[in-house]
Design a protein around this nucleic acid. Structure first.
Length: 198
DNA sequence: GGTACGATTGTCT
DNA sequence: GACAATCGTACCT
């Protein structure tokens, strides 16, 4: 399943449940917004210029996490997909905390402001904080049983899918922003409002 | 060895 | 609505 191209995996992840087990508690998030990144042929991807020490995880097995630091402040979480050697990945942009809300709230409060429960995991960096993920989780396997992170895919694909241009990517004179490689669950309040698609 | 820049967020106006 | 924050990585000298 996860070894398929990012463009096929991304919509299938919507509605899926991602659970992390930490010393301070367990948090489960229902994925509501994702973006596909097609590796070396995608100017918006970190892997566009080939394999490096930072993005090596993306070239590896599907089902591993690629966690990177952005602007020295935030963390963003990707799920690696596609066959080995292909740097496909799906960026997890937003979700709804369905279990462990108190734990997530404590983490979010420690990291900064949080206005409501809907904000707990709305936005890529917020999602990472709520799940307690940081760069030490880079390369973690979400498929292996007994790991600290696990993913449960929805038995049936989510309905009411919406697609639109990706957020915050540039290159090829804005060409890449035209691809509708962003997927979210239509009408879900936990989808990030940041530059919402028209 | 130095520098430019980024898959964002929170805060201020 | 605009902007500063902040640091690892990549790319250049």
């Amino acid at each position: 399943m996860l070894s398929r191209p990012a463009l096929e995996v991304a919509p299938a992840l919507l509605g899926g449940l991602l659970t992390t087990r930490r010393a301070d508690g367990r948090v489960t998030v229902r994925i509501t917004e994702v973006e596909a990144y097609e590796g070396e042929r995608d100017p918006g991807s970190h892997a566009y210029r080939g394999q490096t020490a930072r993005n090596a995880v993306m070239f590896g097995r599907a089902g591993h996490l690629y966690v990177y630091r952005h602007l020295g402040l935030h963390h963003c979480v990707n799920l690696v997909c596609g066959p080995v050697g292909t740097a496909s990945a799906v960026l997890l942009r937003a979700g709804e905390v369905v279990r462990g809300a108190e734990v997530a709230l404590a983490r979010r409060t420690a990291a900064g402001a949080c206005r409501s429960s809907v904000d707990l995991a709305r936005g890529p960096a917020r999602l990472a904080v709520a799940l307690g993920l940081d760069r030490t989780e880079n390369g973690a396997d979400v498929v292996a049983r007994g790991g600290g992170v696990s993913l449960v895919l929805p038995s049936t694909p989510a309905s009411d899918l919406a697609t639109g241009p990706r957020v915050g990517v540039s290159g090829l004179g804005g060409e890449v922003t035209r691809f509708p490689w962003r997927f979210w669950i239509a009408g879900d309040p936990t989808v990030s409002a940041y530059r919402r698609a028209p």
